[in-house]
Write a protein that binds this DNA or RNA. Structure first.
Lengths: 222, 222
DNA sequence: GCTATTTTTCTTACATGTATAAAAATCTAC
DNA sequence: GTAGATTTTTATACATGTAAGAAAAATAGC
């Protein structure tokens, strides 16, 4: 057992790099050249070490990306003035998280995390929970409500980001276009009706509308 | 230009495998041993070919997984009797999609698709659109409403599936546990209040509650 | 039959994440 | 000092997706 009052020298070979250094260097690469260029080998070279040395500071690449996201969230999420009215506070807090995440283009690779639980995001989660409780929900239902909002928010970002990436990769006609091309208006009239407007309609950013509807529904259920 | 009335012989080396065969073999592997065991080499061996030959029938592995999902959806999604009342029809259609997808454990890898646009899912999309229009929404707002439901549904599945996978991989204490361990009850009282119940609360399946709230909110907004 | 064309298949090669085990660098006990 | 113990770093190796191009197998025109 390590003695907390003992002199601070630990045994073993002293580290030449630190987790902080790894994260900071990774951030530089991602900021400068995009997440695609972030490889463990590249990162090791940049930091003046070897690929496997990194694995003593991060569990694997996925954890590194989560740490990068936390790091990003800590910078991007400052605490704004939120409205006093509970419903509007919930909207504003969720929208702030959404805005920060949506601005982070490499996010879809990570965003499937269980919650966004970086310390800097907790304050926003607190605001949402508080708004829900103030609106009359029990703490338990407030947690469920927050999760619902998170599912919607994460889903919106992941779906949109991935769709954008696929569009960039593909050249030929989308699978979607092919499907819409031979819709039977008798069998699927509503889809046929909007078929030619589907692309622009789904390209619109309706996150806030959906969020408000969702929160309205959550609060109306008492 | 190919003449439709010409004899059916096409030039070029005749294919020894087909896209259907690739998909069917891939499905066998996934069903029997899980999606992790599906590699292009394994699939090629199983099918009696070489890895690169597969790439003439599917664009890449991601497309193969999407095709697998479509194939799965075609089998899993039979058209049930849906309620006549629009709101309940929307709930039932979305819940049917959700249920089919949630039962598919390898889904998170693919589910970030733009929409679930396999032909067999279209009927459900139609039902949702129709329910929304019948409830008074314009076709445009109905499309937005459907997308909102899809974001929520996809987000729920992806987040839950990934969380389950991470729990299975990790051994040590969760990042989440560590975060909750040192919460300051003065700064974040609501979170502190539910901290010890967070894991069971978020493990509960509240998809249907959230879905109903969301649809209520969408319909209330006219 | 011979050549050109077209389509599919096969061979080879590379970048990537990471497992495994050896090596290096430090501390502690004697 | 010398011998473990402990921790970090390095070297090597492997599985994977897939790019690039050669080879094979068919048709079409002559």
């Amino acid at each position: 057992m390590p003695q907390p009052s003992a002199p601070r020298k630990t045994p073993g070979r002293p580290p030449r790099i630190s987790r902080e250094e790894v994260i900071a260097t990774a951030r530089r690469i991602v900021d400068a050249e995009g997440v695609d260029r972030l490889t463990m080998r590249r990162l090791a070279t940049e930091i003046g070490s070897t690929p496997m040395a990194l694995y003593h500071h991060v569990r694997n690449k996925e954890e590194l990306l989560v740490l990068l996201l936390d790091d990003y969230a800590a910078r991007a999420l400052h605490r704004p003035e939120l409205p006093a009215q509970p419903r509007e506070r919930i909207v504003a807090a969720a929208a702030a998280i959404h805005e920060a995440l949506a601005a982070c283009p490499w996010i879809a690779e990570v965003l499937t995390a269980d919650d966004l639980m970086s310390t800097s995001a907790l304050w926003f989660v607190e605001q949402i929970l508080d708004g829900l409780v103030e609106s009359g929900l029990t703490p338990e239902r407030a947690v469920h409500g927050y999760r619902t909002i998170w599912y919607y928010t994460a889903g919106e970002i992941v779906v949109r980001t991935t769709a954008a990436r696929r569009r960039a990769d593909d050249d030929g006609p989308t699978y979607r276009e092919r499907v819409f091309a031979d819709l039977d208006p008798n069998e699927l009239p509503r889809l046929a009706q909007v078929a030619d407007r589907w692309a622009p309609l789904t390209a619109e950013n309706t996150y806030l509308d959906g969020l408000r509807a969702l929160i309205d529904g959550l609060l109306a259920a008492h």
